[in-house]
Simulated assay, not measured.
Amino acid sequence: MSWSVLVVDDEPLTQDLLRLMLEPAGFRVTEAEHGLEALEKVKENKPDIMILDVMMPHMDGITVCKTIRSNPETCDLPIIMLSGKTHLNAVEEGLQAGANRYLPKPTSRADLIQNLNEVLAETAAIRP
């Protein structure tokens, strides 16, 4: 099965890098440059999983995550936060906001794909 991934990051180079990491592994990638655009794209066509940056203009990743978790239509969307903010408080804040995982930037292709596959497997196991 080909999973759809929404990559949310305000850096075009990061978006390109993630696309180059994910597409060869069979993921269908769409992108958003900030939190408000991400919420629109989730509403239009709910992806299977989201990779979400924390520090972005217009709406940060923590707020995006909380917004998604508070909406009954999107509350089960798997979210992996990928951020340069890696101190313990930032990781805790991301997980408390509802992220399934919190990964540091940069991350290796192998680690990213492993985490995507694990989260997708976990969420598939609990969905009806």
Rank of each mutant, 00 (worst) to 15 (best):
I68P: 01
K43N: 07
I49A: 05
G35M: 02
E31Y: 10
T74V: 06
L52D: 02
L82P: 01
H34R: 00
E44C: 12
L6C: 09
A121Y: 09
I49S: 00
K66S: 15
I79C: 04
S4I: 00
G98S: 10
D48P: 07
A125C: 05
I68N: 04
I126W: 05
R19H: 14
L17H: 02
L82F: 01
T123E: 12
L95T: 13
P47L: 07
E44V: 15
W3L: 08
G61T: 07
W3S: 07
M21N: 01
P106E: 11
I49C: 05
L112A: 05
C75F: 09
A125E: 08
V29D: 04
D111Q: 15
V8A: 03
E44Y: 08
L13S: 13
E73A: 06
L112S: 06
P24M: 01
T86Q: 14
L95S: 12
L116R: 08
M1C: 10
Q114Y: 10
V42G: 02
I79F: 02
K105R: 15
K46D: 09
N115D: 15
A125H: 03
P128E: 14
I68Y: 05
N117E: 11
V7C: 06
V7A: 03
A125I: 09
Q96W: 07
T30N: 07
D76N: 13
R19V: 13
R19T: 14
G84T: 05
A99V: 11
H58G: 05
N117G: 07
T14E: 11
K85S: 10
V29S: 05
A125V: 06
R69W: 08
K105E: 04
E31Q: 12
D53Y: 01
P106N: 12
K66R: 15
T14V: 15
E33G: 14
S83F: 07
T86S: 13
V29H: 01
R109D: 11
P104E: 09
M56V: 02
L39N: 00
I113F: 04
P128F: 07
L112N: 00
T63K: 11
D60A: 05
L103C: 02
Y102W: 11
D53E: 05
N45G: 12
A90T: 08
A97Q: 05
E73Y: 07
A25Y: 06
T123S: 11
A125Q: 07
M59G: 12
L20S: 13
Y102H: 14
I79S: 06
A121P: 01
R127G: 08
T63I: 03
A38Q: 10
V7Q: 01
N117Y: 01
L13C: 13
L95Q: 12
S83A: 02
L116V: 05
K85F: 04
N45K: 11
R109E: 14
P57K: 06
Q114L: 15
E118Y: 10
R109I: 09
E44Q: 13
L52V: 06
N117P: 01
A25W: 08
L88M: 14
T30H: 09
L82Y: 03
I51P: 10
P78Q: 03
L17N: 01
R109L: 10
G98P: 08
T30P: 02
D111V: 15
L120I: 06
D10Y: 08
